[in-house]
Design a protein around this nucleic acid. Structure first.
Lengths: 333, 333
DNA sequence: TTGAAAGCGTTACCAG
DNA sequence: CTGGTAACGCTTTCAA
């Protein structure tokens, strides 16, 4: 007998086990309201295994009126090992709570167009990193059944829970640290990649805030992530008169440190340098790179927040500050 | 009149527009087989916009018998900027072909258990990076309606298309290069993180293959990604008698180079060093780090392969070698 | 050109 | 304890 490779349904399982579809559902979902005899259970499980039966998530959520799907737009730019660990932890924790976590590539869609695409999947919750969603988007998602929308980013959005990742704190740390070290003419590297502006602007603002009311000055230093750009920036060094730089993150800091050293600048004597993200590689430079260590929330905590929000969709949107920043002084500052 | 925030269905749109559900479907899907009057189309679109109607992907695919969902398990470990760009390009290209691409966190599931979880979403195609899926998994996916399963990894799996990313080629390059440079006692760094074994083993094998039949020797150098581990390895340097190292990738190479230099070893005079991945940061070291540049396939090509496979599910599984590797000699070798 | 109805795979209710 | 049945939202014949 040739197996037709049609997708087996619960009806097929029922037929093979000699029971009704309802019974199959009861057995496979361990429905506690109904008691099924042990032999029957065994027959059903056996049949399901034999056919390679896999339930149809779409049909299930159609029937149930809601899914267990948690949608998380994938950030277009790689966010570094730290953020990656956070995401993995979150996925794991949500998995433990029996949610299905899925990352949706948001490339090419923008604004509320993206929200509509996501809404088609009828997620029960949506986690939005960055600042790419407006109130309209939240509206669309909630209207289509999302019981919780959580933003992970610099600001809050009407109707959504917010995990405030205030990158100004990162800049603030760095600025205060450099001031303490006696630096007064401070440059701040701004990556030219526009996708990073959502983070670089707040970090710059943080530096400014830390130095407000002091005699220190802040200079913006736009920089593309290439050796040539770094060399050009370093060449203008002496005339700029800066005595310190906060370099957005460790990668830009490493790039700039090299270029400065090639120009003959002594780090930290002539110019202090601070990065951010606490990458392993920063420790390999000579001098070792000072950096701002960033603390993300634990994935378990966020998973709990999501779960609570899903269970109580009416509750007030929760707003929580979650980004910890602290200077790790090493040798470059 | 208070809007009940129930998610609007096509029936609601039909009611508001004063037409039948069928008409709504025709209009919103631009069905060419049926001609709908312009005023009606307008009324339907208007009603849909007003209600914020978003179609239910699950219901649609239930009816259609298949989805437009392409599933891609997200690798548990960050794969670097190169791989990231490849993924983004792929998503964009598949999006152009009207597929919905989704990354499924595979954390905590393993083997065919994962395949079953994926199958619940009834994807029309599955792209599996790494070597985590066996023939059983492919079977499960195909049985549940997947028209194409494509593996991106070192080997091929029965029943699946394969984009062979032969990391032995990376090691081969490096080995041949070091031999050409006159090195004969060659160490190969093997990261201790087990998740990387799928790549480090083939790279080691490639080095071995490049040196087979020569007078050169190959020594395995297990190394954890910490400064201490690197220092320990470097301390055993003199006695080991090695004159070259292929360091798995640029990050491990940078770590080791630093440790070796701190031990007083001169690079490349005493020991040549080659990394892989061609990271920007490798250029910042002194000496500049030699590396193996890896060329991934274009996302557009893969998107086309997927599309073809979906349209012709019966076709022979396609097997294609797609990983280009070439040495970028700089100053460390 | 439009409408009625069937059916995709599930599960929950209600009879037996 | 088990089975029939209806309903979830959508598309697609078929009939008007």
């Amino acid at each position: 007998m040739v197996q037709i490779p049609n997708t087996p349904t619960s009806a097929d399982v029922a037929r093979l086990a000699g029971v009704s579809r309802a019974t199959v559902s009861y057995v496979l979902n361990n429905t506690s309201a109904v008691r099924i005899s042990e032999p029957t259970r065994r027959r059903v499980h056996e049949a399901a295994r034999e056919l390679g039966y896999v339930p149809h998530a779409g049909a299930r959520s159609l029937r149930a009126g809601h899914s267990r799907l948690v949608l998380m737009p994938a950030p277009a730019i790689p966010m570094g090992p730290l953020y990656n660990r956070f995401i993995n932890e979150l996925q794991w924790a949500l998995g433990r709570l029996d949610y299905t976590v899925v990352q949706y590539g948001s490339v090419g869609l923008r604004g509320d167009e993206a929200a509509r695409a996501w809404a088609e999947l009828r997620p029960v919750a949506v986690l939005v990193p960055g600042a790419e969603m407006g109130p309209g988007g939240v509206q669309v998602l909630k209207r289509s059944g999302a019981r919780a929308v959580v933003t992970l980013g610099p600001g809050r959005v009407e109707g959504a829970h917010a995990l405030l990742m205030d990158h100004a704190a990162v800049g603030h740390c760095a600025g205060a640290h450099l001031y303490e070290r006696g630096r007064r003419r401070i440059g701040v590297v701004l990556p030219e990649e526009t996708a990073l502006e959502a983070y670089s602007r707040p970090r710059l603002a943080g530096v400014r805030q830390a130095l407000r009311g002091t005699d220190a000055t802040v200079t913006e230093l736009p920089l593309a992530y290439t050796e040539e750009a770094a060399a050009r920036l370093a060449a203008r060094w002496r005339e700029s008169g800066l005595d310190a730089v906060f370099a957005y993150n460790d990668e830009y800091a490493m790039l700039l440190m090299r270029a400065l050293q090639d120009e003959g600048a002594r780090v930290p004597r002539d110019v202090a340098l601070v990065g951010a993200d606490d990458l392993m590689l920063g420790r390999l430079l000579r001098p070792r790179l000072s950096t701002v260590h960033i603390e993300l929330p634990s994935g378990r905590d966020l998973a709990e927040l999501v779960d609570r929000a899903v269970r109580d969709p009416g509750g007030e949107p929760e707003v929580r500050k979650v980004l910890g920043a602290s200077v790790v002084p090493r040798e470059s500052s």
